[in-house]
Design a protein around this nucleic acid. Structure first.
Length: 586
RNA sequence: CGGAUAGUAGCGCAGAGGCUAGCGCGCUUGCUUCGGGAGCAAGAUGUCGGAGGUUCAAGUCCUCUCUAUCCGACCA
């Protein structure tokens, strides 16, 4: 490609909307352009990179037996009504009516589609296992897109769907994806860690997320260096210490102005772990069949030294969504904010008790009366509820193995889910097994956000001058800069390299050297060849690596193409040598 | 959806009642220059986000609205 003909231009200053380095460079180098909130176009450089990422993904998916298909973005709402997600997913899924007033949706994921396709094609165990995948546009009307390409509304996703006759088959395909994803990310040079995850609205059981660790990430990942435990905070477990003593009688005490646990502890001169606090939420419960919504007050009781993890709470309460309760709602259920507990509350409220509370006793809790608390409250004796782990893990807490946990921010670039029969049963996707019986197909679904993948690479590979993407995914392998007025040598080398199959970006513009070097730094192609009078006079070209601009090599012009190909091979080999082979045992 | 900020030339910004809206970069033409964002000269570019209103006079004040960004709620 000749830079003189290139569609996009580079920007000297960052557009004001760019707040992360990676995103700033993607904009300035002309990889992407924003169209609206969370809506982007990929310009030629961005699209070339995107295509290289997709190729790595396709190769890997094909390798584990995937067959590429393409499903529609626009779906009849019927299939989404079959699984109930038409009702359970809120505004994030966009809906409209077609000319005949039929309900339509923009598919935000394709479990429904994949299942609808599979039920047509699969009838016998002899056809299983199967794996289909697609790389396709998703629209998710996120309430708040942010951070450039990290959280967008329209994006490209690789999603694959596995179909098996039994759990062993599912486990097999799940493990294949587990390993395959590591190879995909490492081939592109993106460091990721895998974490145990919440299966969220997918509704399955086992699931993992692939996280790129970055301070701009929106997920919190809990890890243990000692036993390699890693989990999204939404599901992370930790070891709680319990304190049991002889059970004492409940006792009401005056505790003026003690609306927070801190005030209460200072006033009573006790530790936070000796208290039980109540957190009030309102959960929405949706009937999958009718779409009817119902709201119920949820009271979460947790020991004062811990915090509630809303995701865990939502699961324990089996709620569709949660929001903080308003004061009136709390009062209506006979509880008092600031002095609340589950004791003598409205029986219609759902009480979820963290196991820390069940296993401790004689805790100080609210008396549901302004200015009063109760000493020595005990779960079981004084109130009952659903016991679950609803506590949020934090750095410094103790891992189940006994060591200290750490926390990091991360960006989810991929996920794998075991769906089981959630979709096949709901959508009547059955096969006849060897024993002649009809059984639901067992499914898994596996996603990679392609645009987010690119965004993460841009975050990972940059410096104060611009991008420096790895050779496996950089839009071009070589940046050829001609500084000589007589362009004949530049033209000759450009042709030689191109003919030899090298991906070259040739700066043939009539620009000053400074402009050319700065643009080359910004776009950051891995290998830079500079043709200048100094070296060309001696029959040589200068070669630099974007990853280390201080080192300057001289290659003979006669053998340049050959040497460049060798260099490309060696850079590629460096990355391939670092491909992570990791297996999951289930 | 709540809170905050911002919309003026392709990009970054100034102009905060006064008559013809500016600066830097970029863009166009010419000459010179040619190894780290060149110099000189001559140019072009705006419905001041939109709609209403106040005023003799509105980028400038008021109302409404749209859009974007950030914080939060939310997030397969």
């Amino acid at each position: 490609m000749r830079m003189s003909k290139m569609f996009s231009k580079t920007l000297r200053e960052a557009p004001s909307s760019a707040e992360s380095k990676g995103y700033e460079y993607l904009l300035r180098a002309g990889f992407v352009q924003q169209m609206g909130a969370g809506i982007f176009s990929l310009l030629p450089l961005g699209y070339k990179t995107n295509s290289k990422i997709e190729k790595i993904i396709r190769d890997e998916m094909d390798q584990i037996g995937g067959q590429e298909i393409l499903m529609p973005v626009v779906n009849p709402a019927d299939i989404w009504k079959e699984t109930g997600r038409y009702y359970s997913i809120d505004k994030e899924m966009s809906r409209f009516n077609d000319r005949a007033d039929r309900d339509m949706v923009l598919a935000m994921t394709h479990e429904e589609d994949a299942t609808a396709i599979a039920r047509q094609e699969i009838g016998s165990y002899k056809q299983l296992p199967q794996l289909i995948y697609q790389i396709q546009t998703k629209w998710r009307d996120d309430a708040r897109p942010r951070a450039g390409l990290i959280r967008v509304r329209e994006f490209t996703m690789k999603d694959s769907y596995s179909f098996d006759k039994d759990i062993d088959g599912l486990n097999e395909q799940y493990k294949e994806h587990y390993s395959s994803y590591f190879r995909i990310f490492s081939k592109a040079g993106l460091p990721v860690i895998v974490v145990g995850a919440d299966s969220g609205m997918m509704g399955g059981k086992i699931s993992h997320e692939y996280m790129y660790l970055s301070p701009i990430g929106e997920d919190t990942i809990i890890t243990c260096d000692e036993c390699d435990y890693t989990a999204n905070r939404q599901v992370a477990e930790f070891k709680k210490e319990y304190f049991k003593e002889e059970e004492k009688e409940i006792e009401k005490v005056l505790t003026p102005d003690c609306k927070t646990i801190e005030d209460l502890c200072n006033f009573l001169k006790i530790e936070k772990r000796q208290t039980a606090k109540a957190v009030f939420m309102v959960g929405t419960f949706i009937n999958d069949k009718t779409g009817e919504e119902e709201e119920k007050l949820i009271v979460a009781i947790i020991r004062g030294d811990l915090d509630v993890e809303e995701n865990k709470l939502q699961k324990a309460a089996k709620a569709n969504s949660l929001r903080p309760a308003h004061e009136e709602e709390i009062l209506a259920a006979k509880m008092v904010p600031g002095y609340g507990s589950a004791i003598n509350c409205d029986p219609k409220a759902i009480i979820i008790v963290d196991d820390s509370v069940k296993k401790s006793n004689n805790l100080v809790a609210g008396a549901n009366e302004k200015g009063y608390h109760l000493l020595n409250t005990n779960y079981g004796r004084d109130y009952k509820g659903i016991v679950a782990d609803i506590a949020s893990a934090k750095a410094g807490y103790t891992c189940l193995c006994g060591h200290k946990l750490k926390e990091n921010r991360g960006i989810e670039v991929g996920n794998i889910f075991q769906l089981g029969t959630r979709y096949s049963e709901a959508m009547n996707c059955y096969f006849t097994d060897i024993d002649g019986k009809k059984k639901p197909v067992i499914m898994g679904s596996y996603g990679i956000g392609v645009g987010r993948f690119l965004a993460c690479l841009a975050e990972e590979y940059n410096d104060e001058k611009g991008l420096k993407l790895p050779i496996t995914i950089a839009p071009y392998q070589v940046h050829l800069i001609n500084l000589i007025k007589d362009t004949s040598i530049g033209e000759k080398i450009y042709k030689e390299l191109s003919d030899a199959g090298v991906d070259v970006l040739y700066d043939d513009r009539k620009e000053s050297p400074g402009v050319k070097f700065n643009d080359a730094d910004l776009i950051g192609l891995p290998i830079r060849i500079t043709l200048g009078n100094r070296s060309v006079k001696e029959g040589k070209a200068e070669v630099k690596f974007r990853s280390n601009l201080d080192e300057n090599l001289l290659f003979d012009l006669d053998t340049l193409t050959q040497k460049v190909i060798e260099t490309i091979d060696s850079l590629t080999k460096d990355i391939n040598d670092k491909i992570i082979h990791k297996e999951l045992s289930l």
